[in-house]
Every structure is written in C-alpha cells, then in structure tokens.
Write a protein that binds this DNA or RNA. Sequence first.
DNA 1: CTAAATATATGACATTTGTCATCCTACTTA
DNA 2: TAAGTAGGATGACAAATGTCATATATTTAG
Lengths: 201, 201
Amino acid sequence: MTSIYIAEDQEMLNSALSAILDLEDDFQIIGSATDGQRALQQIVALKPDIAVLDIEMPQMTGLEIAKQLRDIEQNLKLIILTTFARKEYFEAAVNTNVNAYLLKDSPTDKLVKTIHQVLAGETIFDPVLVSTILSAAKNPLTNQELKILKEFSVGKSTQEIADTIFLSYGTVRNYISSILSKTGTHSRIEALNIAKKNNWI
Amino acid sequence: MTSIYIAEDQEMLNSALSAILDLEDDFQIIGSATDGQRALQQIVALKPDIAVLDIEMPQMTGLEIAKQLRDIEQNLKLIILTTFARKEYFEAAVNTNVNAYLLKDSPTDKLVKTIHQVLAGETIFDPVLVSTILSAAKNPLTNQELKILKEFSVGKSTQEIADTIFLSYGTVRNYISSILSKTGTHSRIEALNIAKKNNWI
DNA sequence: CTAAATATATGACATTTGTCATCCTACTTA
DNA sequence: TAAGTAGGATGACAAATGTCATATATTTAG
C-alpha cells in the first residue's frame, strides 16, 4: 500500500484527486492541504511515500516544499503537478531532483500511471512540457535588462528604477531602449505584453 | 438517473470530475469536452439533464454556451463552475438564468450537493462569491474610461486609441488623465496593475 | 425651464520616454 | 600589445505622456 499526500490549493481539484487516487486499490491518501506551509509540516509529520505538489500555492510554493523535503526525506518521491510549462519552474524542479513533473493538462489516468512509474524508480517529465520548453522563444534579454523589465512591470518610473538598482538615469533609459528594440516594440506596455506571453517574467 | 455533461478545459479537473460524478448512483456522465465549441455541439446533440460549464475555455466561454442553450433547451439545468469571483461573470450568469454558480474553491461534495439541489428546482449561488462581489472595491471608471484602459492595456499609443474609438487625441489624453487620477497613479502601467488587481479588466 | 452633470474638444505647459551618437573603463582574447 | 567587448555613463533631440484650465453642446434631474 502506497501512502500519498496531496498539496493543491484549488479545493475542487484537491478533493477530486484525493477521491480518485484513494479509489485505487494500492493507494491511500493520508492527507492533503491547500496551502504550502501546512503541506510541508504535514508531509514531514506523516511521512507519505508520495507527495503530489502544485507549484503555485499560498504561503509556500511546491518547489520550495520540494527543496526542503529533498534534504530531510530521501525516500519520499516527489511529483510536481502544475498548470503552466514555465522554463524557470522546470529547471528548478530538475535541480531539486523531483521524481516527476506533470501538467494539469493531462487526464487523471496519467497521474495514476505516473505514480506507479515513480514507485518503480522511473523519473517522468511530461513530454508536452519538454517540447514546449525547447520550442519557447529564447529570452534575448540580459540579466540587467530583465531586472529593469521587472522593475517597470510594477509601474516604476525611470528615475525610481535608477534609484533602486543604483544605475544612472541615462543608463536605465539605454537599457529600456534596448529592451524595446529586442522585443520589437516602442513602449514599455508592449514590451511587458511580449515578456508575459513568452514567460520571461 | 440524471445525465450530466462536463465542459472544463483543464484536462485533469475534467477527467477527475467526470470520474467522481459518475460514481454517484444516480448520476451518469454522458460526455465531456475541453473546448467551448465542441461542448455546445455535444450538449445540443446529447440533451443531458445537467451541464456543468467552466467559464474560461478556448473557442467559446461557458457563459456564451449558457446563453445559447437557454434559448433552445428549456429543461436543461446549467451549472457554472469557475475559478474567480468576477462581478461581470456573475452578472452575466444571473442574466442568463443559470441554475447554479459555483467556485472551484469548493470541494467536490459541494458540487454533488449543488447538482441535487438544482435538480430539486433550487437556484444556488456560492455564498463566498456573493460576499466577494458585494465587498469588492467598486470600479470607479466610466464605460469610456474602461474602454480606453483596455485599449492601452494592449500597448496602444494615445493616437492609436483615438483612431480606434473615434475620439480626438486630446480627449483620449483627458480620459487617461482621469483614469490615473481615479486610480491614484501617475502612469499607465501603474493604473493597469490596479485595474488587474481589482478585476476591472 | 433652469441648473447641474456629461461627453467631447482645445491649447498650453512641464515631464517623461524613446532614440542615438559618443565616451570611458575594465576585461578578454587573438 | 592591440583590438575587441561588455557595462556603464552623457548629452541632445523628438515624440509621447500627464496635467490643467477652459469651452461647447447635449442630457438629465430638480
């Protein structure tokens, strides 16, 4: 019998998955939470065989939970279950040595199958995810440019950005000009829309 | 026996709900889709007793489906199942006379219960939703201002906005100035962030 | 019917933004 | 060592943006 813990902040999906997995003869749901902090505490306390973790949750993300658990629980198998194929998430997950990374855009059968495969020692990455990552428009922005993009995404003015990252006013404007040129746009809002669409921020 | 159709674009939740509802003795899932167009066609063809509709789906939203179905299928009970408590959605749903409006932030039990209540002739609005709507910061923008906000949210310049909605350049700038003043900001990006946070767009 | 509110428009002004050419300095690298 | 090259900075200019005062119809409310 395999014990499973579910961390998923959308109550409907959380309860639905709990019910479905619990129906499997060899699975037993021993707990679930809709926020990250509680999930981490309970997983440490209950020591399940498998933890299914959503990434975006209140309090603490599934990736943070995975990272902390990796250090203290060697046997625990970690499965990340999330909505979007974001490169940053994926890389973080790979670096944390999670056992599987699945998209919510898969049917529940797939989750069940994945759990079985993980128990058998396999590591599973959703193929849709992998191809999305590989085909995604590569972010052409430098670190500095990305930092500045994030600054003006919250509405800061050039001067405010210059003050927060300790660059001159003119330099910040040069970077912004470069961002606009690389994104093929002529205004901050357009550049932001491009960046969001391509998951650069 | 009650026949149910599910339209929900997130495959994991779709399959999970299908499985769970099908387990109920008196329910039978007769179909499901992950896009709006296909859902509408199949619902018309299969004539279920209940249609559970997500709002945000590719091709066609659940609200559009509900509207079209209301005209041709009087007996069909419509249940809207969605993530966010948005005033516009809620109002549209009420105007379409849907039989229930439930948030995904409820457990599956609640959905099952709601279906039974709807079958008994009741109309159910998620209480969390109703209180959220009532307490939400009221949108202070006029229709024209909102229209202009949406225009510059996609990155259009003042002149481009003026051209698309047939107003003078100066008038558009006045409206934008008014938007900034009402949102307590001094730039379009800040105003956009406020508007998004409060679900005005 | 009048007063107030709306929707639209202008002109004028100060700031901010976007674009460019150029410059300096510290590192690589051929 | 000389020629790049990356990161940062200036100054100058045009265009866009944000702010205000004001004006004129048109509606709406009292």
